[in-house]
Amino acid sequence: MTAPLLVAADVRRSFGATPALDGANLSVRAGEVVAVMGPSGSGKSTLLHCAAGILLPDSGRVTYDGAELTALSDARRSALRRSEFGFVFQFGQLVPELTCLENVALPLRLAGTRRRDAARTALEWLARLGTADVAGKRPGDVSGGQGQRVAVARALVTGPRVLFADEPTGALDSYHGEQVMRLFTESARDSGAAVVLVTHEPRVAAYADREVVVRDGRSVDLERAR
């Protein structure tokens, strides 16, 4: 088996007096989909943000492709995030002033792709998610589920090596939720992306290769009772 692409080991993180993570672990290999589950407030989003280098842990290590994320400068870390990672966040993520198409094209533009090429690729991704019809609308003028699918398109458009998705199907009905999960598992199988997926829906988690459960800020090994 290949070595894990991303490892978060014994991560601790507090917000003021609230210990959100109290020794959590997560690792994912290239081509693997890992589901992160657990009760509300248990620390799933915090773990995702620490693993992705968005939040710095108080202690513990996060390594990506052998390099320690936690030791990089802020600038290097954000550059790495932009070039290697894709994100679907749990809350408000599309730029309200841009159209849906411009939102999806944005990561490509930031990476230096020409406007016309970026727009063409972005439209292909919107179509893949069945949302080509909202391309010209602003995020405020589309439904919650449409907005979520636009965010998924934006996360996948650059072909990231690691995709972080926090409740990416929370606003979707079963049919569209499956569509999103198919695209995630396809990008893992076809382009070897690693996918970290936070979800509270067992049917969504069943698309993953394995699951990590977070309780009270700690990851639980479900096999321990065997």
Binding site: R203, A205, A206, Y207, E211, L222, E223, A225, R226
Partner: peptide
Amino acid sequence: DTQRAAHLALMRTLT
């Protein structure tokens, strides 16, 4: 937890 793991394993197979 043991039961949960067994359920999810079957759900993965069906998926």
